[in-house]
């Protein structure tokens, strides 16, 4: 999905500088996040990505420069107004341990004075949405949930008051691979449904490629490259981005997702074969699924947001795997 200049802007960084004492960690950051975009900030630890995120809701104050939120200077807004229009999801999950699932989700709507009845309805809807039966889960305490379940509630807590912007700080890095996959899918689904602006921080390029409409790669406090996954894959700005991208392959080839093969190898045009020989797969599907599909089909049609991005055949996949091996 290409960002278009006609889209309204949600967040703008203008010459933002951040220093801790004498140490300047972010010298001069300029960035624009569109409304309704899922923007991923990716970088190694210490690259300044989390600091960048926390400056948006003023958990970390800026040293210099301006951040505009919906065109307004965020430092001039009452901090409560600013934060109430932004959901926040933490790496440590940090559900309030003495509150039930329902109470955790209700935290922000309650402060905003939403009617109890409406809140209760929202809680049930949201729980159902993420596949947790309300009757079963409403009154559980956080410690009675698995890590993946806890972070689902963490996300629901952030979006319960329907914020325009959701900030996510490495939300899945502490989870097991299976939960991580499920929650990534959940984020995509919720984003497709609610169209809010999401700024998502991760150190995992795979995750960035899977989730991001656009990705900002950070290194030592600077944005090295901002672009769509395709741009990053095909035209890396420098060796750092290329290496970062290359090193990001999944540990297990079966877990590589097919969209990635297309990104690095390029897609084929629509083959002139009978429709029965083509299997349609979402870009988020893994090679495991792709291998199964190749047992009975010759081509894969890869879709993103219900739109076909291109086609892959067996040679493309094998070529990707062999290049991979050469890295």
């Amino acid at each position: 999905m290409e960002p278009t200049t006609t889209k309204p802007v949600a967040i703008t960084f203008q010459h933002v500088q951040k220093a801790f004492g004498d140490q300047v960690v972010i010298p001069d950051l300029n960035l624009t996040v569109e409304q309704g975009e899922l923007f991923v900030l990716v970088g190694t630890s210490g690259s300044g990505k989390t600091t960048t995120l926390k400056m948006i809701n003023r958990l970390d104050p800026l040293t210099k420069g301006t951040i505009l939120v919906n065109g307004q200077d965020s430092s001039q807004m009452p901090v409560r107004d600013l934060r109430w229009q932004m959901g926040y999801v933490l790496q440590q999950i940090a559900l309030f341990p003495t509150m039930t699932v329902a109470q955790n989700i209700a935290v922000i709507p309650e402060m905003k004075g939403t009617a109890k009845k409406v809140i209760n309805q929202t809680i049930d809807e949201l729980l159902t949405e993420v596949g947790l039966a309300p009757a079963d889960y409403r009154n559980r305490l956080p410690r009675e949930l698995s890590g993946g379940e806890q972070q689902r509630i963490g996300i629901l807590r952030a979006i319960a008051a329907n914020p325009e912007i959701v900030l996510m700080d490495e939300p899945f890095s502490a989870l097991d691979p299976l939960s991580r996959q499920q929650l990534q899918d959940l984020v995509l689904r919720l984003h497709a449904r609610y169209h809010n602006t999401i700024v998502f921080v991760t150190h995992d390029m795979n995750e960035a490629l899977k989730l991001g409409n656009r990705i900002g790669v950070m290194r030592q406090g600077q944005l090295v490259q901002v672009g769509t996954p395709t741009e990053l894959a095909q035209h890396p700005a420098n060796a750092f981005v290329r290496d970062f991208f290359g090193a990001s392959r999944a540990k297990n080839v079966y877990d590589i997702y097919v969209g990635r093969v297309g990104l690095s190898q390029g897609y084929l045009p629509k083959p002139a074969v009978a429709a029965g020989r083509i299997q349609t797969l979402a870009a988020q599907a893994t090679l495991r699924t792709a291998f199964k599909a190749f047992r009975t089909h010759d081509y894969l049609a890869i879709t993103e947001d219900q739109q076909v991005r291109g086609y892959l055949d067996r040679q493309r996949v094998v070529a990707y795997l062999s290049e991979h091996e050469a890295d």
């Binding site: 932004m86 933490l90 440590q92 940090a94 309030f96 341990p97």
Partner: peptide, 14 residues
């Protein structure tokens, strides 16, 4: 108390 819980409370402008 775990600082991340304090951070969550602050991020929600309690």
């Amino acid at each position: 108390i775990d600082p991340s819980i304090e951070e969550a409370a602050d991020a929600f402008a309690m």
